[in-house]
């Protein structure tokens, strides 16, 4: 019995330690945001002299000023358009390709060819992409940037999808469908696609996060202010408010909020998408 008690006490200790570590971890994650939130209500004067105190006086003009100065709604709209359009295209292409690679392809050559794309850094293709789009007149257009994002996400998506379909779409179902006279395309849409929901969620989540945070191509392909994504709108803050620190802080908060709201709402999907065993071979 004492043995049991000892191990229980030990596990209680472990539990407490675990919670302490996790609490410290979460605090380091959240602290910067809270601090910035606080100084968003201060003037430069107080930020320099008393960066951690309660704002005195409370400066509330920073937030309205940010909305007035930065076109946040346009940035948000563009970011959403780019993210969702890319997610749609990538999911469509990768599920089709993955379906073939998992169920019809012989050998692994084609599969390896696709997943090679996963390893390729954006810089390696940036200049030719820039030139190709320019020659096609697609620089500074929405289709242009969506095309680029689709292309760079494709390798990864095919990799995840192929693995997923191999595991979760049983051959028997497809065979049965073929016997019932279902065409290849029909089998894909009627039989396979419903079984691929989780896989698509995984790919969609990843692609969404990638595109949401993409900066490099946005910087070189979207110089028109009407087309800039939220990420680049945030970036503008640096040049414009580099010394009005309260305003800068307010800008950071305003631009962090949409992402946080989206995440809070879709938290389960985001985590489930990742939890779907996407990365398990």
């Amino acid at each position: 019995m004492s043995n049991y008690e000892m191990s229980k006490r030990k596990s209680d200790c472990g539990k407490a330690l675990r919670h302490i570590v996790l609490i410290i971890w979460c605090m380091t994650t959240v602290f910067p945001l809270l601090w910035v939130f606080l100084i968003a209500f201060k003037g430069n004067n107080q930020i320099f002299t008393d960066p951690f105190g309660i704002p005195d006086p409370w400066i509330t003009t920073n937030f309205p000023t940010v909305f007035q100065k930065l076109d946040i709604l346009t940035g948000l709209k563009n970011s959403l358009i780019y993210s969702f359009a890319t997610v749609f295209l990538v999911c469509l292409l990768s599920s089709m390709t993955g379906f073939y690679l998992a169920k019809y392809a012989r050998g692994k050559l084609l599969y390896m060819y696709f997943i090679l794309g996963m390893m390729i850094p954006v810089q390696a293709i940036a200049i030719p992409m820039f030139v190709k789009l320019r020659d096609a007149g697609l620089n500074n257009t929405r289709p242009g940037i969506i095309l680029v994002y689709t292309v760079i996400e494709l390798g990864f998506a095919v990799f995840v999808m192929t693995g997923f379909i191999k595991r979760s779409v049983p051959d028997e179902l497809l065979e049965a469908a073929a016997i019932d006279g279902c065409s290849m395309v029909g089998a894909f849409f009627r039989v396979a696609l419903p079984l691929m929901k989780t896989g698509i969620a995984t790919v969609g989540t990843f692609v969404f996060l990638h595109v949401w945070n993409e900066f490099f191509f946005g910087l070189i392909l979207l110089t028109n202010s009407k087309l800039t994504s939220l990420n680049l709108t945030t970036y503008k803050l640096r040049g414009q408010y580099s010394s009005d620190y309260g305003l800068l802080a307010a800008g950071i908060i305003v631009l962090a909020v949409p992402a946080l709201v989206i995440y809070a709402i879709f938290q389960e999907q985001v985590v489930k998408g990742l939890t779907a065993g996407a990365v398990k071979e």
Binding site: T29, L33, L209, W212, N213, L237, I252, L255
Partner: peptide, 16 residues
């Protein structure tokens, strides 16, 4: 809480 920074945009984090 641990996942929050992942969804923030890179530029917001860098400015922060």
């Amino acid at each position: 809480l641990i996942f929050i920074p992942v969804v923030l945009s890179a530029s917001a984090v860098a400015l922060l």
